[in-house]
């Protein structure tokens, strides 16, 4: 059975989640990948204002395809998360508590998740057409010049995710493979 959760997220709600839980996420999330992370961290370094308040938000590591006429978005699966590891702890310290992507994270990110009470969710990599059906609207809110790498505000409904890393030391990328190794 999948748990239903809403974004912006609530810390109390995330606390109950454990690595291996299936969830359906609805609400508002923001896309951001390599170039957007670089810019966000540059703004933070310069002490400037960010295009959106990170507190209690979830960032989805994704760069969608252009939408076909009439569709809110094109294919929109996750990108590999480790490339955002260099930036993620900085964002977590400013209140970001949800990250959505694919693949293992660094020790520093795992630690930032633990410290801030966040969650790292895995979306299914390469299921971009399927995931697009959960996206109800998409709007570029920053860095439009980055094209697919711009930050988009997405309204999602029942986006299927798996809790990959929780705030209590659970890590499905370690526990899962250990179970099936021979």
């Amino acid at each position: 059975m999948s748990k239903t959760i809403h974004a912006p997220l609530r810390r109390e709600e995330l606390e109950g989640l454990r690595a291996g839980d299936s969830v359906l996420l609805s609400g508002v999330i923001y896309t951001g990948r390599d170039a957007a992370h670089k810019r966000l961290c540059a703004l933070i370094n310069e002490g400037k204002e960010l295009p959106f308040d990170l507190r209690n938000q979830a960032i989805y590591y994704a760069g969608p395809c252009p939408a076909k006429p009439g569709d809110p978005i094109g294919s929109c699966g996750p990108t590999t998360s480790y490339r955002m590891d260099a930036y993620a702890p900085t964002l977590c310290n400013l209140g970001l508590i949800g990250m959505i992507g694919k693949g293992q994270r660094s020790e520093a990110v795992v630690e930032a998740i633990r410290r801030n009470g966040g969650v790292y969710f895995a979306a299914t990599g390469g299921a971009g057409a399927l995931i697009a059906t959960s996206v109800k609207s998409a709007e570029v809110i920053a860095f439009e010049d980055l094209g697919t790498e711009a930050i988009r505000r997405l309204e999602v409904e029942n986006l299927p995710l798996i809790v990959a890393i929780d705030a209590h030391g659970g890590n499905l990328y370690e526990e899962g493979p250990a179970r099936y190794r021979r």
Partner: peptide, 16 residues
């Protein structure tokens, strides 16, 4: 399911 949907809607299988 994704691959079926992509072919049906003439949408990319993967955004990459």
């Amino acid at each position: 399911e994704n691959d079926r949907l992509a072919a049906e809607k003439k949408m990319p299988i993967c955004q990459d």
